[in-house]
Every structure is written in structure tokens, then in C-alpha cells.
Simulated scan of single mutants.
Amino acid sequence: MARFRKLSHTIWFCQYHIVWTPKYRFRILKGRLAAEVESCIRAFCQHQRAEVLELSIPLDHVHLLVMVPPKISISNFVGTVKGRTAIRVLNKFKQLRQKPYWGNHFWARGYCVDTVGLDSEKIRKYVKYQEEQEKKYEQ
């Protein structure tokens, strides 16, 4: 994989590590729900021409390592991915809307974003390590 990507008048390398959680950090991201969340995230990233490098979905948060073209602001990118994923998940899993604490919101309000510089391999290992630790914790 070449480090830099090209647009018509730009050479770029914009890599981000993004973390966000379900509302109230409920530990619900498992089974079919986690598979749907992963599918949605990948689809909406591809739609925005972003490249998913790593994606990990432990029970109570999402880790996404992604390359986002510089013409897309990171706040718009995360807003689109979280918003459209929430809409699709709440439409597919209607039982979530029945709970009084969900309302029309699936994700918590904020997110954490970090730019990845020369240590991208460390970040990739960290994302994978988090998933392994979560599995050990659950057993």
C-alpha cells in the first residue's frame, strides 16, 4: 500500500483513529447488531470514498482507523457515519426504539478522533489488541 493517495490536484495522507460509543455506553454491540453496525460503517465509509484500515466493535464502543480524503471534514464524516448507521440500525432493530432510554438516538453525542502520524502500525495493533482484551474480559 502506497503511503500517499491522489486526487486530481492533491496528494494526501489523512489517517484518523475514531472512537465512539452507544448511548449510555450500553454493552449491546454483539451478534447481529454488531454485524449490522460493521456493515453500515463500511458501506458509508466507502460511499464517502474513505478507506477503512481497521475496524473493531467491542461490546460498548467502536474503533475505526480510516483514511479520509482531505475534501471531507472529519466532523462531517463522523456525523454522516454515525447518523446514517443509527437510522439503519434503529429501523432494522425496532425493539431498540421500545426502550424508554433510547428514543431516536442510538449513539452517544460525542466521539474521540486522533490523527495518526508515523505510528499507524502501533495504532493498528492497539485496535486489534483492544478487541482481544474485550473477548478475554467477557470470558
Rank of each mutant, 00 (worst) to 15 (best):
A2M: 09
R5Y: 12
S8Q: 11
S8M: 03
H9Q: 09
H9Y: 09
I11M: 12
W12P: 02
W12F: 11
F13G: 07
C14F: 04
Q15E: 08
W20I: 09
P22H: 01
K23D: 10
Y24T: 06
F26T: 14
R27V: 04
R27G: 03
R32P: 14
R32I: 14
L33E: 09
L33D: 04
A34S: 13
A34D: 07
V37L: 14
A43K: 07
F44N: 01
Q46K: 14
H47L: 05
E51Q: 08
L59P: 05
L59C: 01
H61T: 14
H61Y: 15
H63F: 13
L65R: 04
V66D: 03
M67D: 14
P69Y: 00
S73Q: 01
N76R: 13
T80P: 00
T80E: 06
T80A: 02
V81M: 00
K82S: 02
K82P: 08
R84F: 06
A86C: 13
I87T: 11
R88D: 07
L90N: 01
K92N: 08
Q95W: 15
L96G: 01
R97K: 15
W102N: 04
G103M: 09
F106S: 01
W107K: 11
W107V: 07
A108D: 15
Y111Q: 07
T115Y: 05
L118T: 14
I123Y: 12
V127D: 04
V127R: 06
Y129V: 02
E131A: 09
Q133H: 10
Q139A: 07
